[in-house]
Design a protein around this nucleic acid. Sequence first.
RNA 1: GCUCCCGUAGUGUAGCCCGGCCAAUCAUUUCGGCCUUUCGAGCCGAAGACUCGGGUUCAAAUCCCGACGGGAGCACCA
Length: 490
Amino acid sequence: MGIKIEEKKKEKRKLPPLPHARKGEVVTRFPPEPNGYLHIGHAKAAFIDYEYACMYNGIFILRFDDTNPVTERKEFYNAQKEDLKWLGIDWDKEYRTSDNLPKHYELAKKLLDEGNAYICTCSEEEISRNRKEMRACNCREKSLLSWNDFIRMKEGEAVVRLKGNMTSQNTAMRDPVLFRIIEYPHPIHGTRFRVWPTYDFYGAVEDSLSGVTHPFRSKEYELRDEVYFYLLDCLELRKPYLMEFSRLDIRGMPVSKRKIKPLIEKGIVSGWDDPRLPTLRGLRRRGILPEAIREFVLSQGVSKAESIVAFENIEAVNRKILDARAKRYFFVPQPIELHVEKAIEGEIELKYHPSEDMGKRKVRVGNTFYIPKEDALKLKEGDVIRLKDLYNVKIKGMDRKIFGEFAGEKLIEGIDKIQWVSEEYIPMKVMIPSLLYKNGEFNEESLRIVEGFAEKNVLETKHGEIVQFERFGFVRIEKNREIVAIFTHK
RNA sequence: GCUCCCGUAGUGUAGCCCGGCCAAUCAUUUCGGCCUUUCGAGCCGAAGACUCGGGUUCAAAUCCCGACGGGAGCACCA
C-alpha cells in the first residue's frame, strides 16, 4: 500500500488525451520567432507540443518562423535552442520557415492563377478602412497585375491578399494579406528574398506541408482559424487538427516580450536574464529548475480559460524538487558577533543534507561566532540558545557584541537553534528578487540586497549551484568577479 | 462599437463534449497538530468554489436562452 502511494506521487504529470490521435501518428511543432529570448509562456507551448509528441510516440518539430527579416536576429536561433535544451526538450526535426519560401511562392502563384488571391495596391489605410466598411476595392476583381509584376514592385506598393469574404463577421476573413515586400536583409538569407509571407499564410501552409497533425497555438489566434482552414481549402492541402490554449499570465510579472522589452530599455531591469523576469534565463538565474517549469506549466493544462497565476505556485513546485537536492550551508544575514567563553575549539563536521546522504563539510570553530541580527535582538541575559549542530550557549550579556558561555552539548528541547558562522567566513551579498509590480504599481523593493557572512565552505560551490542557506532560504550561487547569491525562495 | 472566446474555493486546476455515482478532484494558500538540531521538507487534519437569472428534465457544474464580468481580434506583427 505504502509503495503504491509512493509510485503514484512520483508519477509524472500527464496531459489529457489528444482528440483524433493515434499512437505513432501524432506530429506536433513548436514555432518560435527568433526575435528574442524565450519566456515561460513559450515554455508552456513548447512543453505541450513536446509532451504530446512523447505521449503518442510521435514526432516533434522545432520550426523557426523567421519571415520578418526586420525583427529576426541571428543570435536568437541558437539562444532559443539552448533554452529549449535547458528545459529538457528535444526535437526530432528542425527547420526554418524561411527556407521554404520558393515553395510558398509556388503556392502563391496557384492562388493567384485560380482566382483565390489578388494583388492589391491600396495603401494600408485604405485596406483598413475598406475592411471596416466591408467594401472590396477595385484591385480585388479588376487587377491585371500578376505575381511576376508583384515581385518587381517596391516595398509598400502592393501586397498579395486572399480573396476571403469582405462582408464576413469575422474581420480576419476580410481578405487578409498573405505576402508583402520587405527590403531588409534577413539574418540567414541576406537579400535573397524580398517577398515575405505573413503568419496567416505560412502558419497554415507549414503546418500542413510538414505533416503536423495537432498544431497548438494560443488563444489570440482564434479568429484566424477560419482563415487557416479556408486557405488550406483553396490550396487543396491537408487540414491539421488545430487547437488553442490560453496564455500564461503571472500576477505582478510581465510575461510577454512586448511588456518586458521596455523594462530593459528603460533600465528598470538589468537585462533579459534579470532574476525578476519570467524569461527562461531569468528563471534560471533565480534558481528555478526546468523540471519545476515543466511541472508548473503542465499543471495549467490546455484549456482556454484565462487565469492569472501566482508565482508562489512555481515556487512551491520548485521548493519540493530542490529540497531533496540542495546542499545546506550556513549564512548569517546582518551578522552580530558572539563571543563564547569556555568554547570548545577545533574542527567539526556538518552534514550537507539532513536526510539525504551527501557527505559532510568541515568547519573550524573557536570562541568567536556571528549570528543573525534578527535572532540576536530577541536575546536576553540568561537565555540559552543552541548554535545549530554545535552546542548550547548561555547569554551572559551584550553591548555591541554578545557575550555567552558554553552551556553543554546536549540538545535541549524547545530552544532556538540558530545558524552561525565562525571566524572562517566570507562576506556575501544576497540579491532578493520579488514581484516587479504590486497592486499594479512598480515595486520599488523588487530587488533588495542583503549582506551577511557565509561559512567559508560556500567557496567550494560551483557557479550556478543552488543550495539552501539554512533558515534563510534557497539561493543560487553566482561566481563572477565576486561571489553572490540570488535568493530563490524560502 | 462590432465579432469571437472564457467564467468551478484566495490562487491554479479536474469534472462539462456523452446530465444522475459531484454533499465536486488535485495542487497551492491559510490555520491547527505531529515530526525534524533549519523559519525547509515530510506526515495528519481543517477552512474554502460550480458568476447571476430563467428554461428543458424525474434529475443540471454539466444542455438551451439571457444578463453580468474578464480576455482577444478588428496590422503589410506573430
